[in-house]
Structure formats: C-alpha cells, structure tokens
Design a binder for these strands. Structure first.
Lengths: 297, 297
DNA sequence: ACGATAATTCCTTATTCCGGAATTTAGTGT
DNA sequence: ACACTAAATTCCGGAATAAGGAATTATCGT
C-alpha cells in the first residue's frame, strides 16, 4: 500500500490500514510481534491499533489465540465495496451484453500486484465452468486478463512486476520466462487483445482486452473463456476478439477514460491469432507504446 | 457497526471505519456534507479522514466528482480478507466434501444485518446454476440460510431484525409476514434445518443448517440447493437434511464452538419436511430455545 | 455571469497518541 | 508440577496531532 504521509492526512488511519496491509501481504494470521517487525511501528502502538480493530470486528483472533486475522466486518465492507465499486457498476451491463452475445462465460478482473483478482463473473449455461469464484486470484502471466493488463500498463511499472514473477508451468503451454512473456506482450500491444491458449488449464481458451483508468493506464480487463471441447477451432480467438475489445473500450470510456467516445475504431477488425501468434497488426493506442501516461485521457 | 470507544482504543481509526460504515449503509456514493450528517463528526474531521483514505486508495471519487465511494484497495483487502477468514478456511474442506456427496451446488454465507452475504460457493456440474456470485446478498426471509441463521440467533436480536424487515414476494411461496416467518422459525428450531421451497425462485429448493460461533449464536449457514426440474420429489429435503446438518456441525465445531465434538447426534435423523411443514421433532439444542447464549460453548 | 452552497485551507487549543518500563499471561522444557 | 522464557498487556508523563472555528476558494444551478 502506498505511503502518502502528506500532512493534512490522519496518521492513525494510515497506520491502521498499514497493519491491514501487512496482514494482507503475509497472507496468514500474524502475532503482535510480527506486526511490529513488518510495520516498523512500536509494540504499544501496534497493540492499540490491533485492539481497536478487534473491537470493530475488522480483525478477529486467529487459531493460535494470540494471532490476528481479518474479521467479518472487513469481509462485509469489502464485499459491499466490491459491489459498489465504480468499475463493477459501470462494467456490469456491458458484461451482460457480452455474455448474451457470446453465450460464453465472461469475467472481469483487476490487477493486484503480481496477480489478477476476479471481481465479477457471468457464467455460461454450459456444463463445464472452471471452478473460479469472485475473489479468486491468478498470477498475471498465465491469464489472458493478466497479460492484457501487463501489456498496457506503464512500461516501467510492468517491467518491475515482470522482474518479480515466479513462473510456474501450469500446462505445457504456460509462459515460463520473462523473455517469452515480453515477446508475447509486444504481440498483445499490436493486436489490442491477449489470448490464453491452454496456458492455465488444458482445454481452456480465452480472449481478454484491457480496461484503462483516467490516467490512461490499464488496471483491469474483461475476457471471454471457452473450452476446446466445445469449440476446437482456433478461429474462435478471432471471432471473439472484436466483441471483447468493444466491450473493454466501452467500459474504459464509461470509467472516465476521457474522450474515448470519439474513437469508433472498435469494430470489424480482423486479427489473426489463428496461427501460433498474431501477425497482422492492429495498433490500438499508437502513442509511444511505452511509458504512455495520460494518453488520450 | 458497533461503537466500542473504550479508551485504550485509537479514536481516529474508529472514525475512519465509521465513515466507511456510513458509505456502506448508504450503499451509494456520498458527498462530504452527507458524511457529516450521517457520522455526526465535524466537517473538517470528515474531510481529513476522507482525504486520508483517498490517498490510500481505500476510497475513490464518485461519478459526481465531489462524492466518495469505495476504492480498489479496499476491494483488494476485502477479497483477501474473504479468502483468509477463519470461517471460510475451516469450512472449505467440509463444503467440498458436502458437494461431492450431494453432487449439488453448496453455499456458505454469513448474516450481515437483514441480509445474508454469499462468501463461498461450490457449483454442481449441472447446467442450471442460479446466477449468484460470492459477494451477492439476499434478504434473510427468503433464503434457507437466512432463515436458519435467524432461527438460531439470540432471540431478542432476531426479534429486532424481524421488525425491520421489508417483505417482498419473490414468488407465490415467499414468506411475506413477520407472523408467518416466526412460525416457520419455530419449525426450523425443532428440526435443526431450514428449507427453501421455491420461496426465492420458482423451481429452486434448498436445505440449510446454521453455523455457530464461540458465543453459541448462529452467524452463518451452509446449504445445498437444487432444482425441481432435476429432483421433483419433496423427499430430497429429507435426503439432504442429515448431510447438511452434519456439515454445519462440523464447521461449528472447528470454529471453536467448544466441545461440540462430544455431540455425535448428527446422523441418521429423519425429519419429515415431506409434507408442507415438519411434524416429527428433532430437537437440536434443547436449552431454552429462546435467549440461548453461550449454549454448549 | 452571478449567487448560493459545498469543499478546502489555515491556525490555535486541547486532546490524544506515543513510547519506555513495569506487569501479567501463556507457553515450554525439565 | 514447576520454573523459566518470551510474548502480550497495562500504566503514565511528555509531545505531537487531531479538533474546531472561521476564512477562502471552488462548484453548481439559474
């Protein structure tokens, strides 16, 4: 979590959330002493902050009785936040349209560190729906949405993230090196979409397009996923591409990515993901393609 | 949200969360002035608290530019909290077993005010899965899990909640009066489980059992749901009852509902939900059946 | 463009939080 | 069972910080 510390900000509040951030990064219950180490605050301060949040049921005691972990109130507020967040509210109708058009499962996720978090999900009526729920996470490098976001983030920022990745092959096709990932990201920038070709799970394919915030940086993505069992042809990549891109652009526009309404370049494109990787170029945002910031916003 | 205000707690932190609670109750973006009204704090204080949380991306600006709403960091932390929360961690293996045994969709939810919030959900492989996601909410009175929790809460507390309900008929069978609900809750207390007989959606049935915390109060529930299309017989209620109850008891026990391990009374019961409402009694917690507090914990 | 309403900044006072040390509790090994 | 260790919790004076009023600036509606 960011450190703002402008004076004119309330330090105790920042500290409270910093402790929550510690818990969140550790991803397990923590004892007082561990909070002290991780946060750098003095023991007494941590103790009182934690006690305060315990009282509010933002935290609860962990299994080892002396540890702290997230409490029900935080979950309640968090889930309410999810449903009220601008991204989801603006994206939902677009997602519904996308699902109705494709008849496949569509997802919305946002990046959080090296991972993407699923924040909304509309299921197809077909039987095999990969067992993913809202709140689940995937590493960026093996998810179409992760790659789409990475490709359209500020280049330095993306670079830094890629450096931290710990690649693990989920299938034979999973990208497992930084070099391969960067090459792929170039393709994605050319095409405006990212695909997932059984890189996460055998038989599972998807197409994702990035969603931009008001600063012009990609922070979220939409995708459509399907199984090779039902749609064996690689043509499906091309088939879904314009639809997904159009949906993503619509969401970006509504998210306040400024005058995006004036760029009617979303339909009728033909990108060949048909072979092993795209060749025809369809530049989406032509600026610098690296270090874009505030582009068209 | 509760007011603790014990000295020895950090007030600024409480205030920060109180503002979040305002936002959460309002369920829409709020302007500074509205926070002032709702919280009772002075304008300057609210302003700085909000500004602080904006800086941390716990909040973001709403569409009307001057309003505040939940931000991405809160969603990230909230979803991480969800996955790390003790309830879910302890319940997950039990839920998986339950799903494998029943082959139907199973849900875990907790109560939040007048609503239940879905916190985990394992889907059946059948086609028709009601379009509900983690984070979604339902009114307590038209959900099996809601009724199960209500039936096994502290009686005064339940009474108070029922008073606040605003009944709306979702189907012909939806419970729409406080009197009918209380009658049903009595049945539920006798049987140890709550059923949903197309009260939320035509063709949708379910059985739910309550989960108790260490104070002996029900705060969450598990259920199994299915469609009448696939299982038309009312016998399914009885069929799933012992399994669901056993699962709920196992979760309660693991949640620290004390010496529950010593009560092997969960299997082999036969409750007749077969007709319109149960008749055979199977008392589950025999104490007072009202105003229980700390029972068996 | 103008008026009204709400947001933001500034400054002083008093409160609240910080942090060291003392005390209690819990956990561990013999 | 008992002592010993390590961590959690309480206490208190000093100092930084948040509160609150008033003044200023921005924003919205007409």
């Amino acid at each position: 979590m960011k450190q703002t510390s402008d004076r004119e900000s309330i330090k105790s509040v920042e500290k409270g959330f910093r402790l929550l951030a510690c818990l969140y990064q550790a991803n397990r219950p923590l004892a007082l002493e561990e909070f002290v180490t991780l946060s750098g605050y003095k023991k007494t301060s941590c103790f009182r902050l934690l006690k305060t949040m315990l009282g509010l049921e933002i935290l609860e005691r962990g299994p080892n009785s002396k540890t702290y972990q997230f409490g029900p109130q935080l979950v309640s507020i968090g889930l309410a936040a999810l449903k009220n967040m601008s991204l989801i509210k603006t994206a939902l109708p677009v997602l519904q349209a996308l699902r109705n058009e494709t008849h496949e499962t569509v997802n919305l996720s946002m990046r959080d560190g090296n991972e993407i978090v699923f924040v909304e999900r509309l299921m197809s009526n077909y039987i095999v729906n990969p067992n993913i729920n809202v709140g689940d996470r995937l590493p960026v490098y093996c998810a179409s949405m992760g790659k789409a976001i990475l490709a359209f983030m500020r280049a330095e920022h993306a670079e830094e993230l890629i450096g931290q990745l710990n690649f693990q092959a989920k299938t034979k096709r999973t990208i497992t090196t930084a070099a391969a990932l960067k090459k792929e990201l170039n393709e994605i920038r050319k095409n405006g979409v990212a695909i997932n070709d059984e890189e996460l799970e055998k038989g599972l394919r998807g197409v994702a397009a990035p969603i931009f915030n008001h600063t012009g940086e990609a922070f979220a993505a939409v995708n459509v996923v399907w199984t090779t069992a039902r749609h064996p042809s690689r043509k499906m990549f091309d088939r879904f591409t314009p639809t997904v891109v159009a949906a993503a652009e619509k969401i970006s526009a509504r998210m306040g990515c400024g005058s995006n309404t004036s760029s009617p370049r979303s339909s009728g494109c033909a990108v060949s993901w048909g072979k092993s990787s795209g060749r025809k170029t369809r530049r989406r945002r032509t600026e610098t393609d690296s270090g874009r910031r505030g582009a068209s916003c």
